[in-house]
Nucleic acid binder design. Sequence first.
DNA 1: TATTGTTATACTCTATAACTATA
DNA 2: TATAGTTATAGAGTATAACAATA
Lengths: 160, 160
Amino acid sequence: MAAELETEVHTDGKQELRVWLRLLSTTKLISQEIRRRLRAEFGATLPQFDLLAQLDREPEGLRLGELSKRTMVTNGNITGLVERLEADGLVIRETPGDDRRVTVARLTEQGKRAFAKMAAVHESWVHEIMADVDLQTLTILSRDIDRLHRSVENHLSEGE
Amino acid sequence: MAAELETEVHTDGKQELRVWLRLLSTTKLISQEIRRRLRAEFGATLPQFDLLAQLDREPEGLRLGELSKRTMVTNGNITGLVERLEADGLVIRETPGDDRRVTVARLTEQGKRAFAKMAAVHESWVHEIMADVDLQTLTILSRDIDRLHRSVENHLSEGE
DNA sequence: TATTGTTATACTCTATAACTATA
DNA sequence: TATAGTTATAGAGTATAACAATA
């Protein structure tokens, strides 16, 4: 009986919708604040910060195609994004191997220093903004959003 | 002991950061898919859909300032957003009372029909995309994201 | 022929500030 | 003076497709 009810509830899609709408508005709420501060303090945008974070994890750099996947930014738009960061001296593009089609982007020394500063301040902002949320909720959220992410990712990649 | 440890862990901000990064990438993953479908099926964007959803809940319509708050879109940008929807015949602007500064936007009949269709399909998309997530996880997520949202909202409004 | 990345284009969103009309 | 909304502007993101160079 209970199982039947659950299945029924789950089948109608209301709970999914509720989760999605809350996800969307909460992310918008936080990201507007983070973006505002990133722009004010560092003249940077969230996509730029994300791109720098990806490169910071890979000292050898990343091919633009791989960077495109990880940041979920289309190939055509990665070029412009990287160009702006290159103009700021934070990133450099190189053709490392024999395959001359390949371009790898990596952080410059200046880029590493700049990102280290940004990342530290960014973490403190997030900590401050979520300061009133209890640890248990955060722990569960972290686990469940991760489940959701994997599940959605899996679903969408199957449909390709 | 355990309490001390928890406090310590909570103080460093790592868990908050993890939640935020996952929130961000999961939302981006889903919203790219939803936006793609909204554009393909209805020629609409997510901010437009959001605005229509707000108006759909208020048959009397909403003042532009209130609409701005609910959609988290600045006053200056609400004008353009509403204008595009008005050009499509989905929304109408009126000055209802004696205060001639006030403008209220509400759905037209065509707008109501169009949104009903969009909302139904949108719900089915979200249901489909999250189909593999178990109900319990969704229920907990819904509760915890809501907590997070209220907490962040409360924190940010205090700092004004 | 397929792959890697770039270029071109068009549109929307976003943030900010100055401005108009009204109260 | 304060409020409601508009206008103006500049910059960035986004999606799409066509393109060049290389494999």
